[in-house]
Design a protein around this nucleic acid. Sequence first.
DNA 1: ATTGCTACTAAACGCAGAGG
DNA 2: CCTCTGCGTTTAGTAGCAAT
Length: 646
Amino acid sequence: MNWIVIILCLLLFPIVVSKPRQRFEILPTEDIEGIEGLLNLEELNSYNLHQYIGKIDGPSSTWMEFLAKYGLIENSRVCEYCPTPMSLIKETDLKAENYIWRCAGCKKDKSSTKVTVKSGSFFEGLHLSVQQVLYAAADWLENPSKKISDVSRDLKIDKNTIVKLHEWFRQMTKQWFYREASRDPNMKLGGPNKVVEIDETLMFRAKYNRGRMLTRRQVWVFGMIERGTSKVIMFRVPKRDSSTLLPIIHKYVRPGTTIVSDGWAAYGGINRMQSAYNHKFVNHKTNFVDPSDRRVHTQSIEATWGVLKRKLKSRFGDPDHRLDGHMFTYMFRRFHEDTMLLNHLIYEMKFFRRDQLPHTDGDFDLDSSDDSGDSSEDDENDISEDDSSEELSDVEDMDDFDEGDSESDHSSDEEELQNQQRWLSDEDEMEFVHRPGPDIVNDIDLHGEIMSLARRAGRELSPTSRSSSPPARSGRLSEYDHVPPTRNGLSGLSESPQRGRGAHAQRRGHGRRAVRTDSLTAATAAATTEATRPSPRRSPVLNRQGRGTHAHRRGRGRRVVRAGSPKSPTTSEEPATTPSPTHSPVLNRQGRGTHAQRRGRGRRVTPRQAPQPQRQSQAREVHRTNGADAGVVTNLEKAPGQDFKF
DNA sequence: ATTGCTACTAAACGCAGAGG
DNA sequence: CCTCTGCGTTTAGTAGCAAT
C-alpha cells in the first residue's frame, strides 16, 4: 500500500509543482482561422469590438489572441538563428505588459533571441496599443466627417497621431483597391444588361480660370459607376483623351455592358472596342437626359462628383494632396455598400506596411509626364470656350474650391482646331468621330497607374505602348511595388524584412555600456510597487553590478514572467476596474537623462544619481493616467445615453 | 535552462506654433 | 480648424548579463 502511495506521489509531484507548461503558440492550432476568417465574422464595429479585442485599455492577451486567430500576427515562431520553437513570455513593466517570443536555443552563443508578438505586423513598433488603433479605425469608418480634434479627445490620442492613422487607413483602402483590381473580375463593373455611366471631372480648377491658386495644378478624375449597385471606380488621369480613357474602360468595364457617357469625343471609340460595349451618350449641349430614352443620362456619376467634391471641400488642407486617399476610401465604402468595412480594413492591416508608404499622396504625379501640363491647359480651354451646359456641372463644382479674378489662357491654333472636334454631335451618334490614336485595346497607351497595375500583375507592356505614351511618373512607380499579393498566394507576415533582429544588430554596434545606478530610491520603489509585487525576491546586499538589491530595483524596467497556459493571461489579469498601479508620477520609467543628454554619448560610467525631476507636463500625465485613474472607464463609457463604445 | 532586469537606440508620440 | 514642421519626450524592441 505504501508503495502505491509513493508511486502516486512520484507521478503527481511533477504535475503539482511543475511550472506552467511552456507555451509555443498563442492559440491552439485548431483555433486558427486565418485572415479569410475575418470576412466570415460578424460585422465588426466600435460597439462589438470589445468582444474580440477587449476595451481600449483592456488586457493585452485579448487582442493578441484575436490577431493570432486571424493571422495578423504569427501564432508561433521559430528562431531564425537556431531553428528552435520560441516560447511565449509575458513581459510586464510599470506601464504595460507585452508578450515576447524568446528562444532558448541561442542562449549558448549570446543571450536568448527575443522578438515581440507584434513583430512583422502592422502594429510593430507602434506606441499605440492595438486596441487604440482598431478603435480608431472603427471610429474613422463610422464617423467619416468627425473632426480630428473630437477623435483625438475621444480616443485620447494626439491629433497628429490621429492624422497619421487616418492617412494609413486611407492608404489601406488604396491597397485594397489594387489588390482587388488585380483579381479579375471582382473589380470590374457592368456586364450584359447592366449600365455603367462614365464621366470625367476637373478637380481644383478656378472657376472661369479666376481667383487665387491659378498656378495650382489641375487634376482630371475619370469615373465609372455601375447603375443599381453604386459601385464606383475612379482615377486621376493625366488627360481625357481616348488613348487615356479607353484603356481604363477596357480594363474595368465588363464586355457587353451598356455604357452611357456625355458627348465627349474621346468616347467615340467605345463602340469599336473589342469588348463589344453598347455605347449611348447624351449631348449635354441640349439635354441632360436623352428625351428619346430616359435611361440615357449620366446623373449618377455627376452626383458622385458632387459628393466627392463636397467631401474634399469639407476638409482643410490641400485637397489635392488628399484626393487619392478620399477617392479610394470612397470606392472602398461604396463597393462594400457600407457593410463589413472594419472587417475589410483589418484585413488590409495584415498586408499593410507603414514603412513602405508612398512618399506623398500625390503619387499619381501626372504632371511629371511631359505633356500633362499642356493637356491640362488644353482641356481647360475646352471648357471655358464651350461654356456649354455640359461644363456647367464642372464649373459649379469647381466653385467649391476657388473663386476669383481673371486670367486668360492661351492655346495654339492647332489646339483650337482639335477642340472644335472634341464634342460629339448628334449626327455622330451613328458614326462616332474617332481621333487618331493607338489601337485602344492592343496597344494600350497606359498612364502610370495602369502601368503600375500591369507591373504588379507581372505583365509586360509592349514596347510600342511604352513609346507611345508619355513618360510615366518616372521614379514614382516603385512606390507602389509594395502592394501586396492577391488573397491567393499571399505570404503575409513572414516576408516582412522590417526591423528584424538583424537590422537591429546592424545598427546597434554597441555592447553593454554603463552600469547605471540612478534609480528610484528604495522607498519610492517600494511605495510604487509593493502592492503589485506579492513575492519579491529580496537581497540585503548589493550585487556585483553595484546595483541596488533586487527589491530595490523593483519598479524599474520591464519584468518578464512566463506566460501560463493559453487561458492564464486572461484569467490572471486584474479586474478592469482596478486602478493601474504602474504609474510613477515622479520619474520616467528608466530614470535616465533626457533624450538630448543621451544623444551622442558613448560608453561611460554614470555615478549614482538622484532621481530626475519630473519633466512631463501636467496635462500629459493626466492624459496618460486617465484610464487607470478612472478604473479604465473612459469618459466615453460614462457618457450619458451612450452605449459602450470604446 | 530559464527568468528577470538593465541599458541602449531608433522611432513613435506629443506639444506647440505657423500657415492656409 | 486641418495640416505641416520642429523639437522634446516616451516607448518598443532587444542585446546582454545576473540571478534563480
